[in-house]
């Protein structure tokens, strides 16, 4: 999709009173956005994998094994604890990776 040119006259909204998207060039913005989307999609696959996958669809099948050294049937563990632990890891990983990507593209806040 072509990038819209900023309107000449001062628009009513605050966001447009500043240089658009922090003054990044259109190519840089597109590349930054593409990398962000790729990261988001891969993390969402993990998110769905541990919850909908291991916790629900594969729950009965996984229950034939136990977490090593504990009384947890594996599928039950994913549903009641494991998925949540992975969620936390996903969110912190995304924050860390994106904050790095911001710096790489000079897209971070001043």
């Amino acid at each position: 999709m072509p990038d819209a040119t900023p309107p000449e006259d001062s628009p009513r909204r605050h966001a447009l009173d500043r240089p658009p998207a922090g003054g990044l060039s259109a190519e840089k913005r597109a590349e930054y956005w593409r990398r962000n989307l790729r990261l988001v999609l891969s993390l969402l696959v993990v998110w769905a994998g541990v919850s909908f996958g291991c916790g629900i669809l594969l729950h009965d099948w996984l229950d034939q094994w136990h977490m090593p050294g504990s009384g947890f049937p594996l599928g039950f563990w994913f549903a009641q604890q494991g998925a949540m632990l992975v969620f936390i890891a996903i969110v912190f990983f995304y924050a860390w990776r994106m904050n790095k990507l911001d710096r790489e593209f000079g897209a971070e806040e001043d």
Binding site: D3, L16, A21, G23, L24, R29, D102, A107, E108, E109
Partner: peptide, 25 residues
């Protein structure tokens, strides 16, 4: 409108966000 497409472009990049209390319309 182009202004709205511009707005969407803008929120996708962190750079240029002010503290919340400075950007009252």
């Amino acid at each position: 409108s182009p202004a709205i497409q511009q707005l969407v472009e803008d929120i996708r990049v962190p750079k240029g966000s002010g503290p919340a209390h400075e950007i009252e319309a």
